[in-house]
Write a protein that binds this DNA or RNA. Structure first.
Length: 678
DNA sequence: TCCCCCCCAGTTTTT
DNA sequence: CTGGGGGGGA
């Protein structure tokens, strides 16, 4: 094993020989290197790789760690090493031990489908639904928040609907709506059972409950799981801990985390869980890594300043082992187009004159949506890029159409799947589809359905739909073939339904779906694992919607990512977009100190990604409007408001701004000019 | 009554 | 780029 790159602290952490450990490590101190090193060390010591489970928050992080372990070992020693997200891991366990968890023939549903189910429930329970002014999506938020935090319904309503307020008026309101919400949530659970649906939280709960209540189940798994290596431990929430706890007696825990990088409280994560580690985990130790290997001192000075100005104490001051470099640059921009142009020109200059590759550049944004103009400019200037974060591949409408056909064969009780598949066809709307579905739900099994589906629907539609059903049914052992057959029968209608952008954009996703299908042995696996799959990452290679990347571009591209998806990433040159008032902290979060501090950590994560050069852009318009019209609240809470001048270099955009014509937003015409009303 | 199509609004962050 | 709403047509 090649471990010569480890320092003394890291080596101690990698070769830890106690039972459970938490490695507390600041940004850039080698957290990932530690997990990679640990896995390689264990395998080197003779542990079977299939009994080591690496748990991460994103699929990409899992893949990357596994790849790096493989690269650090010889002879395919790590071939069967397992790295996955919590959800994917649970799904795999459920599939592998159908008798243990009792969940076969189920369909894992994504948030879109959850919403559809909840809407059906609200339609069924109109009396209760009308009695509360809460939208179906908010009901799901309450439900999921309650399950993830293991808080009760009243408190979940308080957090999600009333922003945590505890005054008497709020309490009275909660008392009034709580029973009605309960009726709706219980109806949602019933509907899930009827449709044999499993939502994301169920994946964790099914495994957790079984293991907690059944010593025999723990005994079986104790032979399979010896080591749990858990990344980003500060982001685990109570539900995840509820799942992990029964493994304490089975496996050895190896957790790494950093409380200053906890940015998932909206999903119920509590950064204090790292502080509770020693209390909750007997026979455990805490190790600390504090040498930063990533960034220059100037970048760390700014990052340190940011968390030092927090009312919370992180007891963290990163020191660069790499020494000094250039100061972070703060650029005031007047519009998103100027920002996009500046970044594009800067990257092109680095590429052509400074001997840098595209992959040396990382662009970080608070939201996916905000990067759209940037992407337009990159396409215009032919800069290859990959986006992380945002919509999943399987969530695109045209993919869902194709997959809906596969879903109903996998689970004939999948009403959501039927609704999508039936209404896909011309002349069938929700009403007709509903009538067909009530007939379909009476079929005994898939075979019964295959034989009688045509008659149940009737006409040429029935013929067409039954034909597709049957060809998938015949090919259920070959997922790729099933997809191809389905597509060939749906192609005409797809091209018609999406005529505006079918040829240019959506059609090219079909081969990607086929490739995805090749990875799975059954349709059930495709739809449960596939919805957890990221759009841009396929067989380890980024796949872009719309543009076909050639080989060299696959290897060399700029990365555009949300901060949340950028955990663990680093780059030579980093651009943090739109660090403006109302964004850091964001306007929604201003009312809560906890949320403001979470936003501070979001910015902290963003800043600490940079190795050598850090560019921070901010919108001058929002600065001036805030100063002139709004109360001081927004400005006083803005993170860069009291930024010491010596920490950054104010920087003027040196490039001429050219607005490409085809991406130009129409100018707003001001019709109030020319008239003096005085 | 049901279905289709066009237009508009509004988008945190993730599994 | 999707979801909802409104209007027109069958």
């Amino acid at each position: 094993m090649k471990n010569h790159i480890l320092n003394a602290q890291q080596k101690k952490a990698v070769e830890f020989d106690g039972k459970h450990v938490l490695v507390l490590a600041g940004a850039g101190t080698g957290k990932t290197r530690c997990i990679v090193g640990r896995a390689a060390f264990l395998i080197d010591q003779g542990m079977e790789p299939e009994k080591i489970q690496i748990l991460t928050f994103t699929k990409r992080a899992a893949n990357e760690i596994v790849e790096r372990v493989k690269a650090s070992l010889t002879d395919n020693q790590a071939q069967s090493l397992n790295g996955s997200t919590f959800h994917s891991w649970c799904n795999q366990l459920i599939v592998r031990y159908p008798n243990l968890f009792g969940a076969s023939g189920y369909t894992v549903i994504d948030p879109d489908d959850q919403l559809s189910v909840m809407k059906m429930v609200c339609g069924d329970q109109l009396v209760e639904y009308k009695g509360i002014r809460i939208k179906p999506q908010q009901l799901l938020d309450i439900y999921s928040y309650g399950r993830n935090t293991r808080k009760n319904l009243s408190n979940s309503i308080r957090e999600k609907i009333f922003k945590g307020k505890t005054d008497e008026e709020t309490n009275d309101e909660i008392d009034i709506i709580r029973p009605k919400v309960e009726v709706l949530l219980r109806a949602y659970q019933t509907k899930k059972s009827e449709g044999r649906y499993i939502d994301y939280d169920d994946l964790l709960l099914i495994v957790a409950n079984r293991l907690r209540n059944d010593a025999e189940a723990r005994r079986i798994l104790s032979h399979q799981v010896k080591h749990l290596l858990i990344d980003e431990f500060q982001d685990t929430n109570p539900l995840q801990w509820y799942l992990l706890e029964p493994f304490l007696e089975i496996a050895k825990f190896y957790c790494v985390g950093d409380d200053a990088q906890s940015i998932y409280s909206f999903r119920g994560a509590d950064y204090k869980n790292v502080h509770l580690f020693k209390e909750r985990v007997p026979e455990s130790e805490i190790l600390i890594l504090n040498n930063n290997y990533r960034s220059t001192q100037e970048i760390l000075d700014l990052s340190n300043w940011l968390i030092e100005t927090s009312p919370l104490e992180y007891k963290k001051k990163l020191v660069a082992t790499r020494g000094s470099g250039t100061k972070p640059k703060l650029i005031n921009i007047a519009s998103q187009w100027e920002e996009a142009n500046f970044i594009a020109e800067n990257i092109l200059e680095n590429f052509t004159e400074n001997n840098k590759n595209f992959i040396d550049h990382l662009i970080l944004s608070r939201s996916t949506y905000y990067t759209k103009p940037l992407q337009a400019v990159f396409i215009q200037k032919k800069i290859p890029y990959v986006t992380y974060g945002g919509r999943k591949f399987m969530e695109a409408a045209h993919i869902k159409d194709i997959v809906s056909a596969l879903r109903v064969v996998n689970n004939i009780y999948d009403e959501i799947g039927w609704m999508r598949f039936l209404t896909f066809w011309d002349g069938i709307g929700e009403i007709k589809a509903g009538k067909y579905i009530s007939k379909i739900l009476e079929f005994k099994d898939p075979l019964d359905c295959a034989q009688n589906l045509e008659d149940a629907i009737g006409g040429t539609e029935g013929e067409k739909i039954a034909d597709i059903y049957n060809s998938i049914f015949m090919n259920s052992g070959n997922v790729k073939k099933a997809i191809q057959e389905t597509y060939s029968k749906m192609e005409l209608q797809l091209a018609f339904k999406y005529r505006k952008d079918w040829e240019e954009k959506r059609k090219s996703d079909v081969p990607v779906l086929e490739m995805l299908g090749e990875n799975y042995a059954t349709i059930g696996q495709l739809i449960s694992e596939g919805i957890l799959e990221n759009a841009k990452q396929l067989n380890g290679n980024p796949v872009l919607e719309g543009s076909q990347l050639n080989d060299s571009e696959i290897k060399d591209h700029v990365i555009i990512s949300t901060v949340h998806s950028a955990k663990g990433l680093e780059a030579d040159v980093c651009y943090v977009l739109n660090v403006s008032p109302k964004v850091y902290p964001s306007a929604w979060n201003l009312s809560s100190d906890e949320n403001i501090e979470e936003d501070r950590r979001v910015l902290y994560v963003a800043l600490t990604r940079a190795k050598n050069e850090l560019y921070i852009t901010r919108d001058t318009n929002s600065i001036t409007t805030v100063n002139s019209s709004e109360t001081s609240e927004v400005t006083s809470k803005y993170f860069l408001e009291n930024l010491p001048e010596n920490l950054t270099e104010q920087f003027v955009n040196p490039y001429t701004i050219v607005k490409p014509r085809d991406i130009l937003t129409p100018n707003k015409i001001d019709l109030s000019e020319g008239m003096d009303f005085s």
